[in-house]
Design a protein around this nucleic acid. Sequence first.
DNA 1: GGGTCGCCGTACCGTACGTTACGGTTCGGC
DNA 2: GCCGAACCGTAACGTACGGTACGGCGACCC
Lengths: 205, 205
Amino acid sequence: MTTRQGEVLDAVLDLLVEGSALTMNAVARRASCSKETLYKWFGDRDGLLRATVQWQASRVRAGNYERQKLDTAALRESLEQFAANWLAVISSRTSIALNRVAIADAGSGKSNLGAIVLENGRFAIGERLKPLLEDAREAGLLRFNDAEEAFRTFFGLAGRDVQIRLLLGDTTLNLSKQDIERDAAEATRQFFALYGASQLPAEAG
Amino acid sequence: MTTRQGEVLDAVLDLLVEGSALTMNAVARRASCSKETLYKWFGDRDGLLRATVQWQASRVRAGNYERQKLDTAALRESLEQFAANWLAVISSRTSIALNRVAIADAGSGKSNLGAIVLENGRFAIGERLKPLLEDAREAGLLRFNDAEEAFRTFFGLAGRDVQIRLLLGDTTLNLSKQDIERDAAEATRQFFALYGASQLPAEAG
DNA sequence: GGGTCGCCGTACCGTACGTTACGGTTCGGC
DNA sequence: GCCGAACCGTAACGTACGGTACGGCGACCC
């Protein structure tokens, strides 16, 4: 992946975010490259989309969680960061645009953009969060049987209706940085109320 | 909306659920009608899609909640039914297909399918659930300040990652009727843990 | 300075699909 | 039995777009 190729993929992202129709002509014009080059580098339109999705995924992937000795404050801090980061990602125009094409593609089943997005989004964050949850359980801070189920609950508390509303074009939902931090803190508080070891476990699955 | 027109829209739903490309030719063939009739009845392709979305919405709309004197058991029962019904809807092949076209459409901004789906999905269920929550607060069963926020939490606890995974084509998620009932019960239990008046309120927003 | 390579711009091709037009058929009203 | 309306099936048109071909041009090598 040369820098020039990255510029081309950024042009694709630009067009997607704008909501313009993503034709090969439009990409070539925006990226100031020839269509021949596009086909040489990416094969066909599907390959271009796949490369774009992976290109963006490679940028979003944050540092992995480092196993550590946890106390309640550190755990809360980590959870809030996870939630805030996730909310920031799913409310970004880029993520919305990419999820839209991936969802449309998953319907026609031509490429496998949906699987790529899932792998780098929902599943990646799950794999990054579960070690934290398990360390917290080890440290006696959380109670749960199944880390996957606990994660899914946290995912629901953090995301709520945000992603589907944004994907469907709801314009009444405008998450500022402050909103995101407040919502992330609230989700974390609720998660502690459900899974915190200092309280009665809510028959957590 | 004649019954014949309903048959045509059912043909559209069939094609969408199959994942076939939704061309006017395919619709005409599947519905055994002429393209001329399609254009006469629905104007253009967008009109056909709009009519299809509204046609399905008119079928999904369930009975409204009837205000009643609530006790804990009745409240739990109602909440579980709401959650189970919502999970059944969003995991149905029809809903997935319609949400896909609506989301794709919301990206290009041609029609306003996204708004229609939101209005008949997420927002409709919110308006139906909030009176129940408020009655429960009135009856001293729940504690919260903002019914909208409480609803959004319930929405997150019930839906979690289900909708986005299905929209993105995740095939590892297969919700049986039993799964749905179990998840609905669990979400309701968690919601009570967060907002039930018999416990300390979790600083609920 | 000539040859080669990689790329840009553009013209071009084939096809898919939205849309329109039209001949043929059924059916209710008189 | 005849008329008109509604509708079916299909052919035809125009366009948009994915994909290909080709001429030109700067860069680099020898």
